[in-house]
Each structure stands twice: as C-alpha cells, then as structure tokens.
Design a protein around this nucleic acid. Sequence first.
DNA 1: GCCACTGTTAGCAT
DNA 2: CATGCTAACAGTGG
Length: 281
Amino acid sequence: MPELPEVETIVRGLAPGVSGRTIARAELLFPPLLRRPPKGGLAVLAGRRVLGARRRGKMALLEVEGGLTLVFHLKMTGQLLLAAPGAAPPDRHTRLVVTFRDGGSELRFRDVRKFGFLLCVRGEPERACPELSSLGPEPLGLAFEDFRRAVGRRKGRIKSLLLDQTVVAGIGNIYADETLFDAGVHPETPAPALTANDLRRLWESARKILARAIEAKGSSLSDYVDAEGREGSYQEFHQVYGRAGEPCGRCGRPVRRTVVGGRGTYCCPRCQRKARRRLPR
DNA sequence: GCCACTGTTAGCAT
DNA sequence: CATGCTAACAGTGG
C-alpha cells in the first residue's frame, strides 16, 4: 500500500540514516527487481556517497554521488528498511541489500509480492526516466487552480482519476476513499458532474488527509512499516476504508463496500451522494 | 486443498 | 486518445 504518506514517512526516516555514507556494495538478491540495469549492474554504486533521500509520488529516490539516482517503487508490499548491525539476517523476501563502508546499518529492500521495482538512473531522474516524468503534480503544494485543471476536463469516475498517477501523484486506494468521504463525494461521480464546490472540497480534503496521515506516520494494514520497522497509526483514523458494515462516523448508517474500477471501494451511501445530472462548468 | 481476496500499475482491449 | 479490466506475485483467510 505504500501511498504518499507511507513513502514520505519512509524517506524521512531513511534520509538521516543514509545521507553522507559511502556505499560498500549493493547486492541484488532478486535480479528482476532492477529494471533496465546499467552496464555492470549495481557495482557502479560501490565507493559512492549517498547524498540524500526524497519522494516523488509513491516512489522513493536515493541520490547518489556522481549523478546517480536509485528510484524505488514499493508497489503493494515493498519495504525499505535500515537494519542495524546484529539485526536478524535478511529473510527470503529481501530483494536487495546495500552495505556501507562504515560497517553501520545496512539498507534492505523487502517485497513479498515482487511487484516493486528499482531503477538506477544517471542524470536528472525526472527527465531520464519515464516512470517519473509521466507523473502528475504532487497534491501537497498543489494550487487549487492546478488541481481543477488536472481533474476538470477528464471524463472518468472521480475515484479512478484520483488513483491515476498522471493526474495527481501519490494517492492510492486508501487515501482516495478517505478523501472522497471527507469531501462528501461519491466515488463513482463522473468528473464532468462535479461542481466547483465538489472540486474545492476534494482538493482541501485530499491535502488535509494526506498531511494528517503523514503526521501519523502512515497507515499500517498488513505490510507497511517505516525505515525503522515501526508501524504507522493512521489506520486508527480511517473513516471508511476497511470498515464495511460499521456505522458511518457522521450519519451512523453502515459503510458500504463496492467495486469501482476494479478496486475495493468504501463509502457512506448517505453522506456521499452520487450526482445525478451533468452540470455545466 | 481450493478459491477469493489484497495496498499498484503496465499493458492490452474496447 | 481515453477509459476500463486484468495479470503479474505471494500470502492470508474462509
């Protein structure tokens, strides 16, 4: 699940733990993890310092000396972990181990379902790799006018648009449902039926919920933990996600689970009305 | 054991 | 081009 708040939490934990350290070796335990490997593979990393860690959408980026960037996508079950010396050895789901010359904690990438990927790109990563350049804007720090422009002229159902990384980057199934509930918008509403008011509330809700989820260090439902292996707590604040049958916190009617665009979708049928007519905008 | 289900998204069909 | 569905994988729970 790692969505924007989870990846942000991971990156914030990772940055102080890896910045300034010199890589000794990067051991790829599951070679298909590395997409489009550079010639010679990850040996190119040896002897280079890590400069920092940042996030773009749901991806974690490690900047490495010499114009290299490691780009991780955690997909559903990926984890980036700092393992202190003396910690348990890598288990069977560990796909990459990066060790450092100082002999301190090592960086591990674990991924039970093997959907995650790693890129090692040279040069400006946003330019050099399509996985990044195709992303839409970051929802935090996104002006309302830009949000309206991004969503406004699309035709699909609003939930599918929120999940579309080329529209807005970083929102996944959990935060889409929580955002739609908070904004009082039905997930199946066609984008052209959204009022200016709906759009305003969606923009506000998305930013509010993502910011609060970051404060709570993300949502831990099954696999997600931060770089130190700690769970987040935002799942305690979920209003609808994963709560089918439980009373809506606003009106008390049971939360319903449906399928929208092939994704499990939770919403309150009373508080999230489906627009029935197309509104001119 | 078998089947349905899961947080993502690329790729294919429509 | 835009939108919608499914498979890729492994584990869990009924």
